[in-house]
Design a protein around this nucleic acid. Structure first.
Length: 202
DNA sequence: TTGAGGATTCTC
DNA sequence: AGAATCCTCAAA
């Protein structure tokens, strides 16, 4: 952990082994974990989706490695950032074994710290639940762009990490199909915290 | 070199 | 419901 991350009492960084599993196992366990940036925002993850490389026609990595998705094929525990629809950035936690091209998309989070900065970063946000209730919103609130593609969430080498404050994942997370995809649209690989107002598509 | 298709968001 | 907006990659 770099001294850049403003760690609170009782926070602990998720270890490499957490990520080195199939994304459908990692995804629901990322619920209630905390995404944190140096000198900036912290937010509790409340919605995620799994993308499973060659097993998953909806994954960017399904047809193999390209310059864009190279990070997905690297070491688990790194951040995969991609540009979406010509205007939004979205971020994932790389999972599985090296070379598997698997990841978990961080779709929504509940702001905990640095909300003022998040409102500054997201002019369209009128209320707290507008800050990170979607993958593009979350990345914008955190100021995540191409520059953070490949950042190591375990060593926090670029000032971004995922930590636990001891709150476990929901005992019964809500499960359903992923949003905004056309292929493999029936895979029930989206999980969210039941009833949380910061989940996307309220 | 070309062009179709996006893991979205905002406004009307 | 439609626009905004541009990168990526396969195919020619």
């Amino acid at each position: 952990m770099t001294p850049d991350i403003h760690m609170q009492d009782g926070w602990s960084v998720l270890p490499r082994a957490f990520y080195r599993r199939y994304p459908t196992h990692v995804a629901p366990e990322l619920l209630n974990k905390i995404l944190v940036r140096a000198d900036g925002p912290a937010a509790r993850i409340v919605e995620v989706e799994a993308y499973a490389g060659g097993d998953d026609p909806a994954a960017h990595s399904f047809r193999g490695a390209t310059p864009r998705n190279a990070t997905m094929f690297g070491e688990p525990g790194h951040l995969y950032v991609y540009f979406s629809y010509g205007m939004h950035w979205c971020c994932n936690a790389v999972c599985g074994e090296i070379g598997s091209g698997m990841a978990v998309l961080l779709r929504a989070a509940e702001p905990l710290l640095g909300q003022d900065a998040m409102f500054q970063a997201r002019k369209a946000a009128r209320r707290g639940r507008d800050l990170a209730s979607g993958p593009g919103k979350l990345s914008q609130a955190f100021g995540i762009t191409r520059e953070l593609d490949g950042a190591d969430l375990v060593t926090a080498n670029r000032g971004i990490s995922i930590v636990s404050d001891g709150l476990p994942p929901p005992v019964a997370p809500q499960v359903g199909p992923r949003i905004g995809i056309s292929r493999a649209a029936d895979f029930p690989w989206r999980w969210h915290v039941p009833g949380n107002p910061h989940v996307s598509r309220r």
